[in-house]
Design a protein around this nucleic acid. Structure first.
Lengths: 157, 157
DNA sequence: TAACATTGGTTGCGTATGCAACTAATTCTT
DNA sequence: AAGAATTAGTTGCATACGCAACCAATGTTA
């Protein structure tokens, strides 16, 4: 009887999603290191977001990247020290730090893109466009199923 | 041109898998805390594995759960201190610690299962069995696409 | 306007994670 | 059998993560 429930967990989506995500992260991280970029996956994602939208504050970034504001604060501190990112206190509201990507950050990001793109190509090998879309739809459904329930740190990405 | 590549990344599977996994983890963690279990998701997964197979050594567990042996060592130290797990040095090979789940560990695990099962039910709401199987197959394909390439810490789960 | 509430950001804490360097035990080689 | 290589586990280090408590600035309300 207990065994049934355990089997249920195994045949559910959750462990598959989790495990696959872990593997993807691992390869991405590995690729980023091997090519001499001292970027972590998280730092790459941050730069990507900043490339799309500059001048957000820390909370907004945390929200968009689905992390706690404290995590974001520390990530930004590291990135600022490395010179990839600039923190600028707002004049109107002195509580707010607006975040901008620097030239160095842009450069690093551009150099990193092909590496990431390569991993993505590998990982999607032999998967059709239809399958991809189908899968993304199911993933969206999983997300919205969970979004309905309790409260998350913040919003979506 | 750069924008194209960025768009490529966004429409690929990787970010969807990652984000969904993050959300699932978050809910699982939250549910485990809310019900007064002081278990983390990792600790739950460890107990689950031990329920299925007792007496493995640390490296084997690390391998099965897809983590570095140092991470596993520390997780086990915590679980041992809590009394969920017992570490027993092998007589034949004194390097090896065989890991056993304790009665307390079993009890905790059993009480936790319904909580996890509930999250799984929520997350799979409105997803058909066929869709589920289809999705798991694609996830398997992603995993094997990546497994072919460089080297991972260890083996599969 | 003074008191209270809210908001953005920081910090301490506990956990998790992988890598590299290390020790002790075991196995392989010569 | 002695020396070399391998293996299991540990530890230091850096990063990441969320929560809770906190501070300072802004907003709200009485």
């Amino acid at each position: 009887m207990k065994i049934e429930v355990v089997a249920d967990i195994d045949s559910s989506l959750a462990p598959w999603i989790g495990k696959t995500s872990k593997i993807v992260d691992y390869y991405l991280q590995d690729a980023l290191q091997q090519h001499g970029f001292k970027l972590t996956k998280e730092q790459f994602v941050l730069l990507k977001k900043l490339t799309e939208k500059d001048g957000l504050n820390q909370n907004e970034l945390a929200s968009l990247l689905y992390r706690d504001k404290s995590t974001m604060a520390r990530l930004l501190a590291k990135m600022e020290k490395k010179g990839h990112v600039r923190r600028e206190q707002s004049h109107k509201d002195k509580r707010i730090n607006k975040i901008y990507i620097t030239e160095k950050g842009k450069l690093t990001f551009d150099k990193t893109i092909p590496v990431v793109a390569r991993i993505i190509n590998i990982l999607e090998h032999d998967i059709t466009q239809t399958e991809k879309e189908h899968m993304i739809n199911i993933l969206k459904k999983v997300q919205s199923n969970l979004k309905l329930k309790p409260a998350l740190p913040q919003e979506r990405s």
